[in-house]
Amino acid sequence: MTLFATLWADVRGTWKQMVLHGLIFALLFQVFMMIALIVRFQTLPNYVTGYDWIGNVIWIIKSTPSWSDIPPIIWEEWLLEIGKMNYDYGTGISEWSLNVVPSRLFVLFILGAMVSLCLTLTKRDACSAGTSNKLRATTGLGAVLVAMTNATMSWVVCCATPSWVVGLAMLGLGVSTSLALETMGPILTFGGFGLLVALILYLAWRKSRTDLEPIPEPSHA
């Protein structure tokens, strides 16, 4: 109970910072992906397409009979597509693109906020430098797992349904390895979030324990 009270107090005290860091993280991740694409393909984007995300979501809710089918469909809805169109063939074919997907933005926002909380708790934790580094590394691992599985770059524009491993394949990972990893996406995401949640709880527990411990009286007093 003390653990959750401590955690709640920390969240309440830093929520503005968490929201800000969540937003910055989600946006910076889009910028990072765009830079990765530009560097990988050595070309700048030449088209931008906007989508009526809100209208589309309303339409999906109205026209999908089962409630359980709605979230996964909305999950794939795009807000923005920025990419490179190659006009050497036909009427143009998208060579690569960055897809801004609100559902993934939300996940990245949550991730950013959690990382912010982790770092705040780590900073306040009175542990040795070595332990601090381990805690930061664990935070980083959790963040990488979640961020990696929420990459929304697209390159293979042919027939293959876009998935998170497309981004990995595009950045140099072998096709076989990418495909082998594809089904592990949800597991990796949950693994990453699980790691962060566990870390937050651990740090809050340490903090609550420190708060409860009586301050020893100086022996020479």
Binding site: N56, W59, T64, I73, E76, I93, S94, C159, A160, P162
Partner: peptide, 28 residues
């Protein structure tokens, strides 16, 4: 579209009623 994959996604979202594609994407 330049591939069948996005057509399927758009059909799931009920933004397309018909989709025309090759054998592998049809199966997907």
């Amino acid at each position: 579209y330049s591939s069948g994959g996005p057509i399927t996604n758009q059909m799931l979202a009920n933004k397309l009623n018909f989709g025309v594609m090759g054998d592998y994407p049809l199966i997907v």
